[in-house]
């Protein structure tokens, strides 16, 4: 299998990259880590005419604290997210979930920005961007704008980035105090695409009741699926089994819309979502309670 020929550009600054994007808008594809794009090119499912390789734009690779947030450059490798101590301290959901992204060999190359911009419904990082209320900085040759992660995904492998824009930076807020987290998925083998997965966050108030909850699913629709109604059921409640079961039932039966595939029926995906939601909410609630003590 050989990729179709393409015109290759390898800028070594963001400014050059943005200039190239203006010049080739529409024909150009960004090459970030290439862990999804290159397989697609090997199969010739993707045949971009022009490839703009960001791997030498070193200014896009960083992890920086800024107030109550962490800013991450789009070309930061997934493996660096996994081992960053400030992320582990302030956004432990990301540290835990990063270990589910494919294999170390893939995470050594794959990037945060690449995975988010690729918008694969079965990928972990788009789910985490929603769960963590990330903000995404898009830039073109004439300026920049910040896009809320909740407004960024526009369907299967589709985002709201314009043809000449590059996703350059991701802002991740610290998880609030009294917040518990959990990330769970079921895959045929460790590192394979998961049949179903969920990121759960639970923030408790001073009295130990749920103040805010989040449930975001992968492989459950045409993008990361934020089950807002189900999460809302938990608000104001002590997180006992009954309310957790109601939220899991609602999310798995009503809010997600899985498609099934060669490895799983839609019913099995819903079943997995139900089981994973219960387990994840219990773990998140327990972690949140531990933080109260």
């Amino acid at each position: 299998m050989k990729p179709a020929p393409f015109e290759y550009h390898v800028p070594d600054s963001l400014e050059q990259a943005l200039g190239l994007m203006r010049q080739y808008a529409g024909d150009a594809k960004i090459l970030a880590g290439g862990q999804s794009l290159v397989p697609a090119m090997n199969f010739r499912v993707a045949q971009p005419g022009v490839l703009i390789d960001l791997n030498r734009v070193s200014e896009l690779s960083f992890i920086r604290g800024k107030g109550e947030t962490i800013h991450v450059g789009a070309m930061t490798r997934e493996r660096h997210l996994e081992f960053d101590s400030s992320i582990e301290k302030h956004i432990p959901l990301l540290t835990e979930a990063a270990q589910f992204i494919a294999h170390p060999q893939i995470r050594n190359r794959g990037t945060l920005g690449g995975s988010i911009a690729n918008a694969d419904p079965a990928a972990e990082l788009p789910v985490l961007a929603l769960a963590l209320d990330a903000r995404l900085k898009a830039q073109n040759a004439s300026g920049e704008r910040w896009i809320d992660a909740h407004d960024f995904f526009a369907g299967m492998f589709t985002t709201r980035l314009a043809a000449d824009e590059i996703l350059v930076e991701i802002e991740l807020p610290f998880m609030p105090p009294r917040t518990g987290w959990s990330f769970m998925e079921v895959a045929p083998r460790a590192g394979d695409y998961a049949l179903m997965g969920v990121a759960a966050l639970v923030t408790l108030d001073e009295n130990g009741k749920c103040k805010n909850a989040k449930l975001v699913y992968l492989n459950a629709g045409d993008g990361p699926v934020d089950a807002k109604e189900s999460a809302r059921l938990l608000e104001g409640e002590a997180l006992k089994d009954a309310v957790i079961e109601s939220a899991a039932a609602m999310a798995s039966e009503k809010e997600i819309n899985p498609f099934g595939n060669i490895h799983t029926s839609i019913d099995f995906q819903r079943h997995l979502a139900n089981v994973l939601t219960k387990k994840a909410l219990k773990q998140a609630a327990q972690r949140a309670e531990e933080s109260l003590q």
Binding site: V10, G34, Q35, V38, N42, P104, Q105, R109
Partner: peptide, 11 residues
């Protein structure tokens, strides 16, 4: 460790 089939030689 990386997959050499997912990297172009030029990179």
């Amino acid at each position: 460790s990386m997959r050499s089939c997912l990297i172009f030689a030029i990179q």
